[in-house]
Nucleic acid binder design. Structure first.
Lengths: 337, 337
DNA sequence: TTGTAGGCGTTATCAT
DNA sequence: ATGATAACGCCTACAA
């Protein structure tokens, strides 16, 4: 005995108006008399009318929904991005379909397909790998508004992201200025993980500028994204003969791991080991030894990405040339360095 | 010069079949000859056909989309829930609309309205307050499948959540067994925040069982969700004459704050101050001093919630009586206690 | 095995 | 100021 959903027709029947009048009235059209509008509005509320946007989407050819795909939702930075994106889009009347690709290209493709089938008006995506952008460029070629949430030098696709290269440069350079010559780095797979390509570059840039030779034996890559794996990686890194005196951690998570390693190894931070992280989350700012980190303005990033996406959506008939925007980070110096 | 979207009719025209045959063929109906199916499938792929699920939703009266509303996405536990929920639902062919209410009841209502208008088949929600469940119960009364992601004793609404009361009891009791009699607690607003109502109860249960008087002066409530605010709260809490020798932190975030406070105050953990957290995230497990915490099986929670929701959706014509499920946590003892 | 007709709830166009 | 009609793209009858 399930009550059918209330439709425009039901309200029309009850008020004596046509469905079309009801539709206009509920959307506040001045073409309808004030009296009629009030009456209709009242009856609609009374009947607990919920407009069916899906039906509207069909005729308007616009769903007022966008898709957000992140490659890893556990990451606190991406989490903030998700939050800001949803908040900003909500203000513009958009809802957001969310999916986490979890590092699996297959999942990413599935999510894209699912979202497209649901007629999302556009896509914000933090892709899995820098090198695998072709399918996303293809979307754009099909006039499908898409914005990457990363910084990339790739062309033919819009992107707004953090300037990892510069951030990494600043972090490394700061350690050099503190007198360190042997600077290790700790972070997930530099080649495959988006973002870290740039970070490795920035790290090398800084070394080169200071005339320090790049040494791959102190570039450490944890086996997975857990802190534990990074602590492990530290174990091996620091067991070397010529162990680093400073660590540039490419994420706050690995920075915390470095700190943890120091604690359990009775190594003093920053006296015996300096640490700089990346992203400046609460966790490093308020770690037992507050850790220096590169602060990135997630709010600005999210806002700009949303703006760009909405712009693309508004111009989807003839997409403007792809653009890349970058938001710089800034180094926050704390006790760890 | 925008190419229209490919529809069933387009494929029909190109293959010479009717739209209906094409529809059946693409869905793999055996009513269509194998040859026709292959042909149609091929042409569809060639034309890059993307089925319009929105149109299908309209006729099927089912969107294969559910809404997920969290009251705070920054929280690592809720983040994991979001991830698991999306992953599990994805396997069942559902997409998830996401919104963060950010602790604002107004936002929560807006999100619910937006999702209903988009015809979600059901709702998973981590509500803002225990006390404000009436609007959610109303949804259920209107045969709208809804599952709360919290543990609650409220009736008339489905819920699956962590047993906060028991977890808090175990945490507090553990500290008592370690010989502590003066146990403070640190966590966001016990009365308004969902979950913490139960935690305060469990804390008091344990005290009572041990014959320790409950003392509200050592129940500390940080001003917001930042670690910094909790460190501040610790400052005040520990400045008291009869300061606690142990802290039950109602979240891992506050546990980390307690640890941070100890570090900057040169207080030894666990010798001078014992700490137990709640949720057992990586951050406490791998803190400089690994912190004891209540581990909760987020994966199981998410799976059960999704299962229940799908069950409700399948029976939405006549919803079964509301049920509450609870998943117990377990204490993980580490160096902090 | 395939085609035809009708309708899902909304909006836009064109009348009145 | 309001109403009738035709879409939007798909699916489920029912027919052939």
């Amino acid at each position: 005995m399930r009550q059918r959903k209330v439709t425009l027709a039901d309200i029309a029947a009850k008020t004596g108006y046509g469905t079309n009048t009801v539709s206009l009235a509920l959307r506040g059209s001045t073409r309808i008399s004030q009296a009629a509008r009030d009456l209709i509005r009242g009856v609609a509320d009374e009947m607990d009318y919920v407009p069916n946007k899906i039906a509207a989407s069909l005729v308007l050819n616009r769903s007022n929904t966008i898709g957000l795909i992140l490659h890893e939702i556990t990451n606190p930075v991406l989490t903030s991005v998700a939050h800001m994106v949803q908040k900003t889009l909500g203000k513009h009347g958009y809802s957001v379909l969310f999916a986490s690709s979890n590092g699996d290209p297959e999942e990413e493709l599935k999510a894209i397909a699912a979202f497209r089938a649901r007629m999302v008006d556009g896509l914000l995506i933090y892709p899995i790998a820098h090198s695998k952008l072709d399918h996303l460029k293809a979307l754009r070629r099909n006039n499908f508004p898409t914005v990457l949430l990363i910084h990339t030098d790739a062309t033919g696709i819009d992107a707004v992201g953090i300037d990892e290269r510069k951030g990494a440069f600043d972090a490394t350079n700061h350690l050099i200025e503190r007198g360190h010559r042997r600077i290790g780095t700790l972070g997930p797979s530099f080649t495959s993980t988006v973002g870290n390509v740039g970070k490795l570059q920035g790290y090398r840039d800084a070394l080169e500028a200071a005339g320090i030779a790049y040494d791959p034996t102190i570039v450490s890559i944890p086996i997975d994204h857990s802190i534990e794996a990074s602590v492990h990686a530290m174990d091996e890194l620091m067991a070397q003969d010529d162990a680093p005196s400073a660590i540039f951690a490419t994420s706050d998570l690995t920075a915390l791991a470095a700190l943890r390693w120091a604690a359990k190894s009775n190594v003093k931070v920053p006296e015996e080991l300096a640490i700089v992280g990346f992203d400046d989350t609460d966790y490093v700012a308020q770690a037992t030894t507050p850790i220096s980190s590169i602060h990135n303005d997630v709010e600005q990033l999210a806002t700009e990405a949303v703006e760009r996406l909405l712009f693309l959506i508004a111009n989807k008939e003839l997409l403007p040339p792809a653009e890349t925007r970058t938001t710089p980070g800034r180094l926050i110096i704390r006790e760890s360095s």
